Simulated assay, not measured.
Amino acid sequence: MADVKALRKKIEDSGMSISFVARKMGMTRESFYNRMNKPDFRASEIVALTNILRLTKKERDDIFFN
């Protein structure tokens, strides 16, 4: 399960909104919120978020593979 608090913090720190990140991922804001409420992200979503948020490997691992 993903560390949703850390993910939200990273989005906030990036200066991007959740709506913007969701759009970049090709989903609605509501779909992204639903995904965060059941934090079982698909591999393709992890890759997309890593690229959008420019996560380091350590940040990615800490958030999604803790």
Rank of each mutant, 00 (worst) to 15 (best):
A43H: 03
I11F: 13
A48P: 01
M16P: 08
G15T: 08
M36A: 07
M27A: 00
A48L: 07
R35H: 03
M1H: 08
R60V: 04
L7V: 00
K38M: 10
E30L: 10
S14R: 05
R54M: 11
R54D: 11
T56E: 09
T28V: 03
A2N: 12
E30H: 09
M27Y: 13
T50Q: 05
N37T: 10
A22T: 03
G15M: 10
A6T: 02
A2C: 05
D13M: 15
M25C: 05
D3P: 12
P39S: 12
D40C: 07
F65C: 13
T28F: 01
L49W: 04
K9W: 14
I11D: 09
N37P: 05
G26R: 04
P39V: 04
M27E: 04
F41P: 09
L7T: 00
F20E: 15
T50Y: 06
A6P: 10
N37H: 05
S44Y: 15
K5E: 12
I46A: 01
D62K: 15
E59V: 00
R29Y: 09
L49C: 11
R8L: 14
E59M: 12
V47S: 07
L53F: 06
R29C: 03
M1A: 11
A43K: 06
F64S: 13
L53M: 07
A22I: 04
I63S: 10
A2G: 07
S44E: 07
D3L: 14
F64R: 13
K5L: 14
K24H: 08
L7E: 05
F64P: 10
A48R: 09
P39D: 04
F64E: 10
K58I: 12
S19R: 03
V4K: 06
R54A: 06
F65I: 00
D62W: 05
R8E: 00
A2L: 10
E12T: 12
K38S: 11
D62S: 15
R35K: 13
M27N: 05
M1C: 06
R60H: 12
F64Y: 11
M36K: 04
S31L: 13
S44R: 13
F41G: 10
F20C: 12
